[in-house]
Amino acid sequence: MTEALDDRELMNRIGSKDPVALEWLYDRYEKTVYSFAYRMVQDAMAAEEVVQELFLRVWTHDERYDEAQGKLTTWIFTVTRNIAIDMLRRKSVRDRGIPVEAETLNALPDAGAGTADQVENKSEGEQMRKILSVLSRDQKQVIDSIYYGGMTQQEVSVRYNIPLGTVKSRVRLALKQMKKHLSVEGRREGYHG
């Protein structure tokens, strides 16, 4: 990935209210953030609201990025997830059912033609999907509900009628397995987490 300006410089310029820098940041993260938000809220309009709120917070400094906390990508994902969880809790967007685009049956997911400046991470995404695919149905269910569904372990326990201890052990086992595969895949594809 080539970066004209590094993330830190971009955030500094946004801090001094440079709209061009905001646009650059937007272009860089739009697709990744939108896809993640969509995965969580499962609704195009709601996902756009999440993106809107994220960039508003970036612009108004309502959420401050501190380099010491790690990569900007990580910070952006964390804020995005928090916004999406708030939204999922506020209104049940899943029930609204407003399809924005009429996709065809059996449509294949977009292969993702990002520009060089987009945070594309296509291979990382594929790698992650591959890693998730090794999980059992039960493991997938807990990871899905907690991470993408924003549920707590207690909520998962009630929703799927599983004892709390089982939720805990499934999460532990799932992450352990994923970690194992991440390091295997990482060695194969030269990923450095």
């Binding site: 939108y34 896809s35 995965r39 993106v51 998730l132």
Partner: peptide, 9 residues
């Protein structure tokens, strides 16, 4: 988050 299937905005 990168595991989410890419959806065109």
């Amino acid at each position: 988050p990168l595991a989410a299937v890419q959806v065109p905005p």
